[in-house]
């Protein structure tokens, strides 16, 4: 048993077996994280660089913790305070870091396809920690892990992805993963934030009525409105968005059924989720964060252990 790929660039490149292997390995790492010593020596001969060209709290801390729990040596690179600000190209930066004997690169970049470009030019294994509006594979894997933990199985699950689908790499990775694992996916949001390829290329149904979407689903994965990626306004105001697509307790109570609320963070409280839902009993948002470390440990462990 091993992964069919050398890098984790996107869920698109993974097979169903790869996903199952990552999720089952993550179960073992979650058990490690409950031990008195939450650390194993598996990657103590591996050095990993975390290259973050874009802001991040959860993902960066989660990756760094995962690396440390595996006993890997880590270096952190953020674009502010680095030579990238002086005009060094991505490839030059990475080649310079690799010449200092680094084995793996975890990278977040604001340009879609940046990790794919690197994978063509450097020998190290690359883990995509989010590239532009393309993919965020480890987020989709930890979402899947959290769903599997909650429901026992992903196959047959009904998942509604709600919000800014157009700018969301989380949405795209989740759609690829859920479809490969046999779950049903719909997306819901204002028409301006839903790309046309969602139906045409991916075969995902679109629902514009939030109540109907919630009524249908077992899990609602709610996304943040990414104002930083919107050059022109795509809806009138955040208040209007909240009225049309925001989820509050009153709306959930009107469904007369239990659904699970997920969110990849950071939450804009009072926009896509009200506090009584984000902190409420249906929310597994903090479980997602906890599971993120175990899932990232599994990804790093499996990629580092390729036969040479």
């Amino acid at each position: 048993m091993k992964l069919s790929t050398k890098h984790l660039l996107g869920i698109k490149d993974l097979t169903k077996e790869d996903i199952q292997l990552i999720l089952s390995t993550a179960i073992n790492f979650k058990e490690v994280l409950q031990r008195p010593v939450k650390k194993v020596p598996s990657l103590r001969d591996v050095t990993i660089v975390n290259l973050f060209y874009e802001n991040s709290t959860r993902t960066r801390i989660s990756f760094e913790l995962a690396e440390k729990r595996l006993s890997a040596d880590t270096i952190n690179f953020t674009v502010s305070g680095s030579s990238a600000a002086k005009g060094e190209t991505l490839l030059d930066t990475v080649n310079n870091i690799l010449s200092m004997k680094v084995d793996m690169v975890v990278m977040r970049h604001n340009a879609s396809g940046a990790p794919h470009f690197l994978a063509k030019h450097i020998p190290a294994a690359i883990v995509n920690a989010g590239d532009g509006i393309n993919e965020h594979p480890t987020q989709a894997l930890l979402d899947a892990y959290s769903m599997q933990e909650k429901f026992g199985n992903i196959e047959g699950l009904k998942v509604a992805i709600i919000g800014d689908i157009l700018h969301s790499r989380v949405a795209l990775s989740n759609i690829y993963l859920l479809q490969k694992m046999g779950a049903e996916v719909i997306v819901c949001g204002p028409p301006t934030l839903i790309p046309t390829y969602i139906t045409e290329a991916l075969g995902v149904k679109v629902e514009y009525n939030i109540k109907k979407a919630l009524q249908w689903c077992d899990v609602a994965n709610v996304l943040r409105i990414q104002l930083e990626r919107q050059n022109q306004p795509l809806f009138s105001s955040l208040r209007e968005y909240n009225l049309a697509f925001g989820i509050n307790k009153k709306l959930l109570d009107s469904l007369h059924k239990e659904i699970v609320i997920m969110h990849p963070g950071p939450i804009n409280r009072g926009v896509e989720l009200d506090s009584d839902v984000a902190d409420g009993p249906y929310s597994i948002i903090l479980n997602q964060v906890e599971n993120g470390v175990a899932v990232r440990m599994a990804v790093l462990y499996l990629l580092a252990n390729r036969e040479q």
Partner: peptide, 20 residues
Amino acid sequence: LDITFYRDDVRSGLHVANKT
């Protein structure tokens, strides 16, 4: 006890973990 993550030959091939 599963010892997969403590092996000294991790780099010589992938070992699938069991439950501890």
